[in-house]
Design a protein around this nucleic acid. Sequence first.
DNA 1: ATTATCTATAGATCTATAGATAATGC
DNA 2: ATTATCTATAGATCTATAGATAATGC
Lengths: 216, 216
Amino acid sequence: MDRTRRRVGRPPRSEAGDTRAELMAAALKLFSRNGFVGTSIRAIAREVGLSESVLYSHFRNKQDIYQAAMRMAGPQGAITALDALDGLDSADPANFLVTLAERLFEIWDSPQSRQVASLLVRDGLLHDTALSDGIESAVARLAEVFNRWVAEGRLPADLGAAEDLAFALLAPIAHARMLWLHADASPGQRRTAHDRFVRHATLFARVTLGAPAPAE
Amino acid sequence: MDRTRRRVGRPPRSEAGDTRAELMAAALKLFSRNGFVGTSIRAIAREVGLSESVLYSHFRNKQDIYQAAMRMAGPQGAITALDALDGLDSADPANFLVTLAERLFEIWDSPQSRQVASLLVRDGLLHDTALSDGIESAVARLAEVFNRWVAEGRLPADLGAAEDLAFALLAPIAHARMLWLHADASPGQRRTAHDRFVRHATLFARVTLGAPAPAE
DNA sequence: ATTATCTATAGATCTATAGATAATGC
DNA sequence: ATTATCTATAGATCTATAGATAATGC
């Protein structure tokens, strides 16, 4: 990351790294901290220790760097977590819900996911359909699980619409993510997030299923 | 807002408006849309139809405009809504909760509140303590109400910590606000937000109080 | 010959200031 | 005299390009 200033000309093999990947990581870091307009090509190059013109041999323009960085970070969302838990949902509902919260925490606590969260929030992507679509489809996906539970008699039918229940479980977790799992969250903030994730899932399980929460 | 280009010199009385207020409103609008760094002094001046140098006779610098605009918009938060409902909480708990959701919607649906929401989300204020402190104190304030209800036998004592319950009610509402009650939300998005606010409060009341929701 | 870097620079902003100009209110 | 605006401009960035330079791989 912090190479010393190079001399003119192509650097020798021994000093070569994966420049493109380093540039994308630096870009994601700075974009997430200062936003798209708040981050200059120059600043990204300086972060990696290169001249700014080198970015134009790897990317077409600033927008292209942004897109490449977002593609690299990938969409590690709630849907992924739900898919991974597919086998577990027929076993113990309360355990499923708390495990889901734990799983979401693990995914969203990684440095890169936290940078993506900051970036989503910053650059209008929040107000783009990207994030709200993500929430909507995760809610719909979880609602299917709840409907199945109702059909199987594992969940009372008179609580309310499955979609409303799914929103009531996921929205506080998504909210805690945005508040406390961002790019430069302190260890304390990350603990707060974890605490909120688990306590909310536990409360939700107890109130809707009438069961005590499983031991952590 | 869209005055034609003025001629040199102080404008006659007939054309004078409240320039300072117009500048702050324009600044809030543009900051909320494009962020602090994404908004130039020049753009704010052009929005009001004045030369950019006029901003320096009303404000010290760009940062000063930002602060003035935020102060003008004011902190119309959940605490305000809770205070306004103070008399109601001893009457009908379910009604109190749904009324709170309606009240929060009214406050946060105004154009200026929506601009503030966008701005909070954009310029790191989300990651500043400002917003998370706001949530924390609103949660604490509502938890007091819940504790009183438990003491009065209006709310079952075995549901969980009052603070967790308060978070479970408020976080989805705050989340829906950030997703759908932003600066340039469509009428459809604003309806979605209202729908979410009310449906969540209704569900929450039914599940925790065991009572049917009051008619809207 | 190709690739990965560099230096230098054009042209477009942007913030902020200096100083001119014309209306207002005493 | 004071106030509210204007024009003009200095100085600092920023994006993007042109062209030089040195290592690599055939």
